[in-house]
């Protein structure tokens, strides 16, 4: 369940993407029609949601697996990847 929490902002944005309430609204906001400014704001919100995903749901197991038995592992300095050395950190 704890693993799902960082996904919630992304899921919320998926729902909020279809802004039917602004469909025929010609009001101007930030110099743009509100139907456009809403989606500009949506892009900014997407950045925040993705930052949360990266920070709290970093796939540490995958990162470690990549170094186990990788042909190129020898060329990679150990611990260089933050995902390996900082569990749970993004």
């Amino acid at each position: 369940m704890k693993r799902l929490v960082p996904l919630l902002p992304v899921l919320a944005l998926l729902v909020l993407h279809t802004d039917v309430w602004l469909w025929n609204d010609a009001t101007m906001l930030w110099g743009l029609p509100i139907g456009l400014s809403y989606h500009v704001g949506f892009c900014v919100a997407a950045m925040a949601a993705l930052a949360i995903l990266v920070r709290y749901r970093w796939p540490r197991e995958l990162v470690e697996a990549a170094y186990e038995g990788a042909a190129t592992a020898a060329a990679e300095p150990a611990g260089e990847d933050d995902g390996r050395s900082a569990p749970g950190k993004g």
């Binding site: 944005l13 802004d19 743009l32 139907g35 949506f42 892009c43 997407a46």
Partner: peptide
């Protein structure tokens, strides 16, 4: 302007 919501903001997520 609807094009932005169709392709851009959806791609952004």
């Amino acid at each position: 302007i609807g094009v932005f919501g169709l392709m851009a903001s959806s791609s952004a997520l």
